[in-house]
């Protein structure tokens, strides 16, 4: 064995142990019989998993979070894909300004975003909290949508679609027939990244929660304010497995990892 052939497995082992270790603790705790997180877990039981389903507020906020993550990410892609196409294929006047404006949501602290939206959108325009959350989550996901989709557009040679246009296809037709099939993996990874970002979003949603409207992560934090029992771990694991399921399906049908 040479040093180089050892480099790959050792690096991967260490990095993955570091990244996945905490996750394993959480999964183990979800099936524990004890009252706290512990490793090794104290006994085996499904009571914490069962408890998650009995907490009523989790169900409502789960629905809200799912709606925001799917709806917000889809809306961000509808805005983001044309913008990415313009940035990647056109001589766009003020391209840098457009790029900066759409990526801005990443660098502003979430708590400030939530507060700004509450004070200058929700209150003056009497916008409902649900709609405000939807707008905020769309804006938050937009930078990821534009970045990832732009990256996969940049990797796609533009002469194919130019050829299609020369051969008489309309620009729009060329986009749907030639470009879309080739960047759908990029779109999928943008969707997954956006979904995850939106689904775990806490600081923005903290101020944009209203009577009867709450997102799941905010609900979890509120629950943990007083109690931290393994039911929070159980909920986290269930959500993680749900996400893994989504990624697995995406990978199976779209080859997601090729584009991440």
């Amino acid at each position: 064995m040479t040093l180089r052939s050892l480099f790959i497995p050792i690096t991967l082992l260490l990095v993955i142990a570091f990244l996945i270790g905490p996750f394993l603790i959480i999964v183990a705790a979800s099936f524990s019989a004890g009252e706290t997180l512990a490793f090794p877990p104290q006994g085996f039981s499904l009571r914490w998993i069962a408890k998650v389903f009995t907490v009523e507020s989790f169900r409502a906020s789960f629905g809200m979070s799912l709606f925001l993550a799917i709806g917000g990410t889809a809306a961000a892609l509808i805005l983001g894909i044309p913008a990415s196409y313009a940035l990647s294929r056109y001589k766009l006047p003020g391209a840098e300004i457009v790029r900066t404006v759409v990526s801005a949501p990443i660098i502003v602290p979430g708590i400030i975003v939530g507060l700004a939206l509450l004070r200058y959108i929700v209150v003056p325009f009497q916008v409902g909290i649900t709609l405000a959350l939807f707008l905020a989550h769309t804006a938050l996901v937009l930078p990821y949508a534009v970045r990832v989709v732009s990256a996969s557009l940049d990797n796609l040679r533009s002469d194919i679609e130019e050829a299609a246009v020369l051969l008489g296809s309309s620009r729009l037709g060329a986009f749907f027939r030639v470009v879309m099939p080739n960047i759908r993996g990029g779109i999928m990874s943008a969707f997954i990244l956006g979904f995850v970002t939106s689904f775990n979003q806490v600081p923005v949603s903290l101020f944009l929660s209203g009577p009867g409207v709450r997102t799941l992560p905010v609900d979890m934090i509120a629950y943990m304010e007083i109690v931290f029992d393994p039911s929070v771990a159980a909920l986290s694991s269930l959500l993680a497995f749900l996400s893994i399921g989504i990624v697995f399906v995406a990978e199976r049908f779209l080859g997601f990892s090729r584009y991440v």
């Binding site: 990244l19 905490p22 996750f23 959480i26 997180l37 806490v202």
Partner: peptide, 22 residues
Amino acid sequence: TGLVVLPLMISPVARTYAWIVI
């Protein structure tokens, strides 16, 4: 790649608590 992306899908709060155990 899937394993690397996995931690992104777990609530940051839960991950932080796991570090207390570790």
